[in-house]
Every structure is written in C-alpha cells, then in structure tokens.
Amino acid sequence: MFGREKEEPTATKADDRLALVLSYQRSDIDERKIKLFQERLVQLCDEFGYDVVGQITVIPQSKERTTIINASIPVKLKEPI
C-alpha cells in the first residue's frame, strides 16, 4: 500500500546467516578445506570425462542436526582428442 516496497525482514537474513554459521561449525569446515575440496572435485570431474567450465561453489548447509554439503559444478563433456 502507498507504493511502498516492504523490506525483507532482518530475521530472515539472520536465519540464513545462522544456518551458514552452524553448518560451518558442525562440519568443522573452513575456507582452506573448501578450496581443497574444490580442487579434488576438479580432479574427479576430469576422471569422469568432464571439463569444469566455471566456478565451483561448495556450500555446507544444515538441516536439523545434519550437515549437507552442496557442490555446484558447471561442466561440459570433454572434447574428443
């Protein structure tokens, strides 16, 4: 009403932040570990015949007390030599 856009509640952002904070704590993960993880994923893709064509993102997420590691890997099939 009155043309005002309602701002996203702070607590929603805090909730996302908390989920991330908890997942990092529960999985005892840090930036160095994530980088190593990304490097291994590149190797794994290579073994299975894929080229990684973009940024790999590894994001731990918490659901209940379980941590889920989400990896997003943009790939394409390797060109036959």
């Binding site: 996203e8 509640p9 702070t10 607590a11 929603t12 805090a14 909730d15 908390l18």
Partner: peptide, 11 residues
C-alpha cells in the same frame, strides 16, 4: 520477532 528483527522461537 513480528517486525522481523529477531529470530523466532520456531527457527
């Protein structure tokens, strides 16, 4: 909580 400035008990 209602104003979105505090985490809810449920969360």
């Amino acid at each position: 909580v209602r104003d979105g400035d505090m985490l809810s008990v449920e969360r």
